[in-house]
Amino acid sequence: MNRVTQHLILLLLGGALLKISAFSADFANYVKPGFRPLLIAAGTVLIFLPVASAAFDHRRSRGVARQTELRRARAIEEAHLARLVGREPVIPSPAPSHQHGRAGGHRVASLLMIPTAVIFLAAPPALGSFAVQQAEQASHTPPPTLVEARPTTLKPGRVNVLSMIEFADLAWDDPSGSLRGKTVRLTGFVVPSGHGGAWYLTRMRIACCAADALTMQVVVKGVPAPETDSWVRVTGTWIPRKAGGTGTYSPPEMTASRVERITPPDEPYE
């Protein structure tokens, strides 16, 4: 792989990082929002490196050209001296070649450019219903208990806006039953349930990046399912779990009184 190809790959990678982090919010499809400054810094460094390296290569090439001229002048001088004293001229050894493996390097470079080009042409969206259904299992793992995520008060007679993890935490592990009879509003995307008239309101939760995403789901009843993968805001009330259950985790349920279509949020993960 020659240096021009290396520089091009670094420029494309740096440009791709800046495109999704500095000039759009697409980076949030892959990592948490807090990583944005790091991605911008990394993209800037990746663009600066080939520019600085190209400047260094230019200066070095000028030095190589001077050395070539000097060797040519010495060869002419050696040939002249050899004729004067009647001997064979001493031929200096050629400069070492660096052409080995170039064809293979170009093939590797072509493969490295493919994922970068994909980001420019068609950046993959955030995880949706397909990823959820692929990872779906017969039994669900209960969400982590996040006491700090619980709202201080759920007020009757008003709409309480909760995150999916807050709702699941209160529905699964709240002895006071503070959700009972309260109107709540949740936001997520639609995943079909495959049975009855219910469907899943879903949100993915990540600790670092999309690779460690966990699925947070709420079973929505009382209204027809909107289009799969559409983002909606659901207002309704919690359906308490039946007493005497098996203890196996199942997603909490709610009865919807209103479903609003919304545009996908800039930060799709919780």
Rank of each mutant, 00 (worst) to 15 (best):
F130R: 13
L112V: 07
S93C: 03
A65F: 10
P92S: 04
F130W: 07
A123C: 05
L154P: 12
P94I: 03
P96Y: 01
S139G: 00
Q134L: 05
E78M: 07
R185W: 06
L179I: 06
S176H: 08
F189H: 09
L70F: 13
R158G: 10
G104S: 07
R74Q: 15
L70Q: 15
T153R: 15
L111Q: 02
D174G: 05
Q137R: 07
A149V: 08
L170G: 09
E77R: 15
E78T: 07
F130S: 12
I76K: 15
A135V: 00
A95K: 08
A131F: 00
T68W: 12
H80K: 14
Q99Y: 07
V118P: 02
P143I: 01
E136T: 01
T141R: 06
G188P: 05
V161W: 10
G188M: 07
G157I: 07
P89I: 04
A109W: 01
A103Q: 15
K155N: 15
A117V: 11
V161K: 14
Q99T: 11
A75K: 10
L81S: 12
G157C: 08
A123R: 06
R62Q: 14
L112C: 06
T183W: 11
G63T: 09
R74L: 15
L70V: 14
Q67M: 13
F130L: 10
A73N: 11
E148T: 07
Q67D: 13
G105L: 03
A122L: 11
A95S: 10
A109F: 05
L127H: 02
L121R: 02
P96E: 04
Q137D: 00
E166G: 13
R72E: 10
Q99G: 10
A149K: 05
G157R: 11
Q133V: 01
P92H: 06
R71M: 12
R62C: 10
H80N: 13
L81D: 12
A79V: 08
A75M: 13
A126I: 00
A135D: 03
A79T: 08
P144Y: 02
T153L: 14
R87S: 08
H140Y: 05
N160F: 12
V161M: 10
M113T: 04
R71T: 09
G63H: 09
T141N: 01
R185G: 09
E148N: 04
L112T: 03
F120G: 00
R60M: 08
A131E: 04
S93V: 06
S129L: 01
T152M: 09
D173G: 03
I165C: 04
L162H: 03
V90P: 02
S129Q: 03
A82N: 06
L186R: 06
Q133F: 01
T141C: 00
H98T: 08
L170V: 10
H106I: 09
H80Q: 12
P156D: 12
V159I: 15
P125L: 04
V85K: 06
Q137Y: 00
L70T: 15
A138S: 07
L170R: 08
G105S: 04
L84Q: 13
V108W: 06
Q133K: 08
G101H: 14
